[in-house]
């Protein structure tokens, strides 16, 4: 088995130290960093994502795989930057103002990074303007908002409206999620996408990026 397939396989098994070791080896063999990323790390993570969606593996497995993904990505990142390889997309992520629930948003962030996106996590209790300021300052493609409370859902609407007001519609897209949020609510407030979990969020974001 070639080294990239081995990276993918060890990643699937969540073996972070092995993934780091093999990535180092692949770099030493002068394989292109983008190849190592695509055919090694991302290939492995894709399989994990598919198996998770098919209920063949579960959240803890995904999280162990994500940790292994980062172990490899940390080594590759400087080389990808050196080679001018752009990330799959840049995403601003946060839990909206008034809410402190973090865990769902964190999981979404892990999965998005695992799929090769650059994620700038603003944490929780994020005021509407901060999402947009961060997006414009960092040249982000997308804003992801999370909330677990009905009382803070209107903040999502404010962010979408503010994007419109600032003439950024189409330039910055939005994806929303969290327990009380539905696809219908996302449509109602004019968000571009919704997902009920992290792994489907990756699919939605990929689709949005392809449409852009």
């Amino acid at each position: 088995m070639d080294i990239l397939s081995r990276i993918a396989q060890e990643l699937e098994a969540g073996e972070d130290e092995r993934v780091a070791e093999l990535t180092r080896e692949a770099i030493a063999q002068n394989l292109a960093p983008k190849e190592i990323l695509d055919r090694g790390l991302l290939a492995g993570m894709n399989v994990v994502g598919e198996k998770f969606r098919a209920h063949e593996v579960f959240l803890p497995d995904v999280l162990l795989a994500a940790k292994a993904m980062y172990a490899g990505l940390d080594l590759l990142k400087p080389l990808l930057i050196r080679d001018g390889v752009p990330p799959a997309g840049k995403i601003i992520l946060g839990t909206v103002q008034g809410d402190l629930h973090d865990i769902g948003k964190n999981l979404v962030g892990i999965m998005l990074k695992g799929a090769g996106f650059e994620v700038i996590d603003l944490g929780h209790d994020v005021p509407p303007a901060r999402f947009i300021d961060a997006a414009t300052e960092n040249g982000a493609d997308l804003i992801g908002m999370s909330t677990l409370l009905t009382t803070t859902m209107p903040v999502m609407r404010q962010v979408v409206a503010m994007i419109e007001e600032r003439g950024l519609r189409g330039k910055i897209r939005t994806i929303v999620g969290g327990a009380p949020v539905t696809a219908e609510y996302a449509r109602e407030i004019g968000a571009d996408a919704y997902s009920f979990d992290g792994s489907h969020a990756v699919e939605r974001v990929k689709r949005l990026m392809a449409e852009a």
Partner: peptide
């Protein structure tokens, strides 16, 4: 989460 112990963090949560 900060130190990337995602699985442990999520289980603890």
């Amino acid at each position: 989460f900060h130190v990337r112990e995602f699985a442990l963090a999520t289980i603890l949560d």
